[in-house]
Simulated assay, not measured.
Amino acid sequence: MKTPKRILPLVEEGLVDDVLRQLMSGKEATVYVVRCGDDVRCAKVYKEANQRAFHQAVSYTEGRKVKNSRQARAMEKGTRYGRKMQEETWQTAEVDALYRLANAGVRVPQPYLCHEGVLLMELVTDADGNAAPRLNDIELTPDLARRYHAMLIEQVVLMLCAGVVHGDLSEYNILVDANGPVIIDLPQAIDAAANNNAGVMLERDVENLATFFAQTAPELADTQYGKEIWKAYEAGELRPGMTLTGKVEVDHRPADVGAVLRDIEAVRREEEDRLRALQEMRH
């Protein structure tokens, strides 16, 4: 096929030899199967901001690091340079997350490089060497649904132990190779420690999995793995391979409002004492 314009620089640099075919087109990118020497890989070509259906909501980008204060100011003002920096940050977020997760043992495609808005990475294949299908395209038995669900819960835990929340996890961005689910599409990945929305998004990711697999294994609909995982993370107790129940105990004890008010009053008095001491020092 004709080489897409965005992939031409990689061909000219000798990083890609041939574009074999288009694999898929999604809300944020178009993916092509390419040949790199003796290897067959995939090239993810990110769409321009005005062509994407998935927009960079503040809830996703909160806490992302930029190189310097000039870039941060430009991005905040929405200048031309700032928009360019936003695009670069959006694209490199996936590369950074892929390397981080691959090193943590999470089942994600191996990234190779990102150049001019094109991410070159491993082509995930099935047992026959063909491009792996998406989870929503395979037929599940109840036993297989339970097994894949358990495997993905383990992956979510591994991801969070590495400090990452997917943020848009569903059956549409999970591939299935010969060994099970592989998680893809991470440009909206969230830094769990730096983003105030991380807990809500992790729970939503896990609920999406439960909703999908419950179509085949109905008992999964009532599980609360998301809340359980996040609770363990906040307590500093989350570990890879830990036993999870899918249930969360609700604390029915009444809130001690009096104790809270006393704490507030104590803090208020401490602040008054501090200000009074400062005034005395000035005089």
Rank of each mutant, 00 (worst) to 15 (best):
L8V: 07
V108T: 05
V19D: 06
C114D: 06
L144E: 11
F54A: 15
A277Y: 02
T223A: 06
L275C: 15
Q51E: 13
A131M: 12
Q56L: 15
V260H: 07
D251N: 13
L101I: 12
G105R: 03
A145M: 11
W230R: 05
A162W: 02
G105L: 03
V157L: 00
L278Y: 04
W230N: 11
L8A: 06
N208A: 08
K67S: 15
M159K: 02
D273N: 12
V176N: 03
A97F: 00
S170P: 03
Y225V: 10
F54C: 09
A102P: 00
G180P: 01
Q188S: 10
A49N: 05
L135I: 00
Y81L: 14
T211C: 08
D96H: 04
D263L: 07
K247T: 13
V164A: 05
E207Q: 14
I153W: 05
E94K: 03
A162H: 00
P218T: 06
L15K: 07
G63C: 03
Q155A: 13
D137T: 03
R204H: 12
A192T: 09
T223I: 01
I183D: 12
V250S: 14
R268A: 08
K77S: 05
D96N: 12
V165R: 12
V118D: 01
A104Y: 12
L123A: 03
V118I: 06
T211V: 13
E207K: 15
E122Q: 14
L123T: 02
Q22G: 15
R64N: 06
L98Y: 08
Y233E: 01
R73L: 10
A131K: 14
T245C: 09
S59A: 05
L202Y: 01
L113T: 11
N173I: 10
M85H: 11
H149A: 15
Y81H: 06
D222H: 07
W230M: 11
I190C: 06
Y233T: 13
D273I: 09
E171R: 03
T89P: 01
R268T: 01
G117L: 10
P111A: 03
L101P: 08
M24Y: 14
G63D: 09
T3N: 11
A277C: 06
A178S: 14
Q86G: 04
G26T: 02
K227S: 14
Q51N: 01
M75S: 12
K227H: 13
D273P: 10
A72D: 15
R73M: 14
D168H: 10
E203H: 05
A193Q: 07
V250T: 15
V118S: 04
A131Q: 13
Q22D: 13
M75E: 10
A178V: 09
V157M: 11
L261Y: 11
Y81R: 14
E228N: 05
E139R: 15
